[in-house]
């Protein structure tokens, strides 16, 4: 396969067939928490794409270093520390240098540390044996898939608010069942690649 083909297939997998939220169940907390409004979904999505790409870029050389010293089993500890530190760093730098961007994305940044999709994508990159460029590309695409599902779900939820739901199912149960239907529509993509 040429590089371009690989890139397209990675993109389709990350966004449609193996969407992290709807078929791998990573990042459910922000998915349910932030998807109430379209604007906050967009903000969260943008912040996640950015952090995921950077985290993938930073963890790749670190993993090579760990392997060189025969310490690959420390990857979980190393990766989560890097992500936590990185998010903190981005927050500080952004606040100083790009105040408008910080205003838009700042509130979502701390949430990302505990977003398992970010740690998940770095670990999966290693498992799948992606090269540096492909790791970053995969992270960007996974972030886009995350954003897409957030945006779609924000639309569904705004309709859900006017729906007549049985008393017991009000609140989170109804939201989960709506998520189930959205996820079902995404499973139609399976087998595409």
């Amino acid at each position: 396969m040429t590089i371009l083909q690989t890139m397209v297939s990675v993109m389709l997998a990350a966004i449609l067939t193996d969407n992290y939220v709807l078929s791998k169940f990573m990042g459910i907390c922000p998915f349910l928490g932030v998807s109430k409004k379209l604007s906050s979904s967009l903000g969260m999505g943008a912040a996640v794409i950015f952090v995921m790409a950077c985290a993938a870029a930073v963890t790749y050389p670190v993993y090579q270093l760990l392997v060189a010293f025969d310490l690959a089993y420390l990857q979980t500890v190393a990766f989560i520390l890097i992500i936590a530190l990185f998010v903190q760093l981005v927050e500080i730098v952004m606040r100083k240098l790009l105040p408008p961007l910080y205003k838009a994305l700042g509130v979502y940044l701390p949430l990302i540390t505990t977003n398992c999709a970010v740690l998940g994508v770095t670990l999966n990159n290693i498992d799948d044996g992606y090269s540096f460029g492909l790791s970053v590309w995969n992270a960007v695409c996974v972030g886009m898939g995350f954003t897409l599902s957030l945006i779609i779900f924000a639309g569904v939820r705004s309709k859900l608010e006017n729906a007549d739901i049985p008393e017991t199912f009000k609140g989170i149960p109804a939201t989960l069942i709506a998520a189930s239907i959205v996820s079902l529509s995404f499973s139609a993509f399976s087998g595409m690649i």
Binding site: C29, P30, L32, G33, V34, K36, S40, V107, Y108, L109, P110, L111, T113, T114, T168, F169, K170, G171, I172, P173
Partner: peptide, 20 residues
């Protein structure tokens, strides 16, 4: 009553959680 939203009880990021 069923919880209305995701519980971030004790989550260190609760303050940033945009009311979710």
């Amino acid at each position: 009553k069923a919880p209305a939203g995701v519980g971030c009880a004790g989550c260190p990021n609760a303050a940033a959680c945009g009311g979710g």
